[in-house]
């Protein structure tokens, strides 16, 4: 079941690569939040307790409710253009992503012979990290950069669950808090600079250099 959910997670990544609408980005973030919460709860289904439920619940609230809502709010407040202009052909980007994902899957299969990892969750996590980075590299809009960082973080989250059965609770909670704060800070920063940089693109941020 974990494997199926992980594959689903990978499909959302591919959808993320070809879409051009901001609304879809937010929607996918939300979907990934739900998926991740379900994935980390799976190993503990047999013996559920309040203590174990804390992390999935928190991540569900933060990743699937608060953060998407906040990003939506920024989009509406700043009146960002709802469609991005890709500077790489969507098909080429998709090809690049699929290629890197297949390399990652093959490598994880090879690796699983040496170290005890679960191949598919591990590979999906790794793919999320790489695709988050690629998204940041190939997109210019600031708000998409925020999404890219969040995807990267989702990957790291999944990574933790795929390597160790459970990460220490305090670490997970700390990471969640970090992400929340970072998103808020970025939101505030984007808000502040909106009067000067109306375009909301990273290419113009070079003007801030002294």
């Amino acid at each position: 079941m974990e494997n199926v959910l992980s594959i689903l997670f990978c499909l959302t990544l591919l959808y993320l690569v070809i879409t051009a609408r901001l609304k879809t980005y937010v929607g996918i973030l939300r979907a990934q939040g739900i998926l991740l919460s379900v994935i980390i709860i799976f190993p503990f289904l047999r013996h559920l307790s309040v203590h174990i439920l804390i992390i999935p619940l928190m991540s569900l609230i933060v990743k699937a409710v608060i953060i998407p809502r906040f990003i939506n709010k920024i989009i509406i407040d700043l009146d960002v253009k709802r469609i991005i202009e890709p500077n790489i052909q969507p098909f080429n980007f998709l090809l690049l992503s699929v290629a890197s994902m297949s390399v990652i899957f093959i490598m994880s299969h090879v690796l699983s012979g040496y170290t005890p990892i679960e191949t598919i969750p591990f590979a999906s996590a790794f793919s999320a990290i790489v695709i988050g980075l690629l998204l940041i590299i190939f997109r210019e809009k600031l708000i998409v950069h925020v999404v890219g960082f969040l995807i990267l973080e989702n990957g790291i989250f999944l990574f933790g669950t795929s390597i160790a059965a459970e990460m220490p609770t305090i670490v997970e909670l700390g990471a969640l808090l970090d992400i929340l704060v970072v998103v808020f800070l970025m939101g505030i920063a984007v808000n502040k600079i909106s009067s000067t940089f109306t375009e909301q693109k990273v290419t113009v941020l070079g003007g801030l250099k002294d």
Binding site: V130, I136, L205, G206
Partner: peptide
């Protein structure tokens, strides 16, 4: 040294 963050991230990758 470039002003674009995307350059650094691609370098890292």
């Amino acid at each position: 040294s470039k002003t674009d963050i995307r350059f650094y991230i691609s370098l890292m990758l």
